[in-house]
Design a protein around this nucleic acid. Sequence first.
DNA 1: TTTTAGCGATAACAAATGTTATCACTTTAG
DNA 2: CTAAAGTGATAACATTTGTTATCGCTAAAA
Lengths: 192, 192
Amino acid sequence: MNSKFKNIHQVISSYIEISDAEWSYYSSMLQLKVIKKKRIVLSEGNICREVFFINKGLLRIFFVDNNGEEKTFHFALENTFATDYKSFLKEVPSNYSIQAMEDTEVAVMSLEMVQIGYDKLKYGEKLGRLLAEDYFFMFNDKIQAMYTQTPLERYKNLTTSFPEIFQRVPQHLIASYLNISSVHLSRLKNSD
Amino acid sequence: MNSKFKNIHQVISSYIEISDAEWSYYSSMLQLKVIKKKRIVLSEGNICREVFFINKGLLRIFFVDNNGEEKTFHFALENTFATDYKSFLKEVPSNYSIQAMEDTEVAVMSLEMVQIGYDKLKYGEKLGRLLAEDYFFMFNDKIQAMYTQTPLERYKNLTTSFPEIFQRVPQHLIASYLNISSVHLSRLKNSD
DNA sequence: TTTTAGCGATAACAAATGTTATCACTTTAG
DNA sequence: CTAAAGTGATAACATTTGTTATCGCTAAAA
C-alpha cells in the first residue's frame, strides 16, 4: 500500500467500508503530483478535469467578478478535496481558477476514476453521496454566515477556527475571502 | 398509481431509472399533506423530521440572525424539495424555520423512507448522490452570486429568472432574501 | 547586492446601505 | 362593517464599506 495515499485512504474509510483489495485496486489509479507555489492548476473557462486531494500544502479557489477583480471563494486545506465539482462532473467550462499558495502535494483523481468508483466499488455511490452531502453542508454554513454575520464577525471566526491561515496566505486574499476590501480588513483588525 | 404523486415521480425519474414496481412500493410510503398559508412546519431548534416535495404552493426557509431578525434563505417552489437537509439526515436541531407562503400541497418523506430508498431501491444511493450534487450546485451558484453581484444585480436577476415571485411574496421578504433592508430594495426598484 | 514587486497600515473622501419615522393604501381579523 | 395589522414608498440621517493615494517595510528577482 503506497504510503503517499495513506491520508486519502483514511478519509475515504471514514465515509465507507472499503476492503484492502478494493483499495489497492482503486488507489492504483491515483496519481501523485507536486504543485509549485503560485502555480495555477485550473483556469477559468477550462473544463476541470481533476479532483485534488491535498496531502500537504494549500490551494486557493477563486473567480473573477464583473469588475475583473479576483474573489477568493475557498482555501482548501490538508486532507480535503479541491475541484470545481460542477465543471468536473458535468464537463462544462469552469468559473473558477485554482492556484497553489504553497508547494502542494496532491493525489489526483480523474473523472473516469470517479465514475469507476461509483460503478465498481461496493459502496461507491454511497461515498459519492456522503461527500456531496458533506460539501453541501459546508456551503450551507457558508451561506448562513454570509447572511447573518458582519465582516468583523466572520474575521473573528476565522481567527479562532483557522488561526494558521494568517501565516499561510497574505492578508489581502483573506479580505477577498471575507468579501471585503483589503483596506477595510486592515481597519477592522486594527480598531479593536 | 396515485396521481397526487405524479410530479415527484417525474422528478425522481429524471434522476434515475425506477421501475413501476419499485415506484408503487416506494410511493406507498409517501404522505400527502396540505399546509395552510402562514403555517410554520419546522421551527428553529427542532429536529427536521420531514422532506417536503412541493406539488403546489410555496415554502419559505428562513433563519434568525444575531439581532433577532428573520433572514429568508430560500423560496422553495413547485416541483422542488424543501427541508433542512443537515438537520434531517443527522438528526440534529435545525437553525432554520420553514413556513408556507400560500396554501401548499406537499408530498412528505420521513427519514426512514429516505433510508429505505438508499437501501432498497436499485439506484437509491445514486438518487441520493445526484440530488445532493444538484443542491450543492445550486448553493454554489448562490454563493458565487453573493460574492460577485451587487444587490441591484441580484434583484434584476430575480426579476428575470423568477418574475412571479413578486406577486407571490411580500417585498420585504424578497429584500431579506437578497440580504438587504426593505428600504434599500424599495430605493433600488424606484431609482432606475 | 541592488532593484523591483508585493504587502499592509493609514488618511481622506465617496458611495452604498442601514435605521428610524411617517404616510397612504390594502388586506385581514373580529 | 370596522378596527387592526401588514405593506411599500419616501425622507433624513447615521453607519458601514469601498476607492484612491501614500508610505515604509519585506521578500523576491536580476
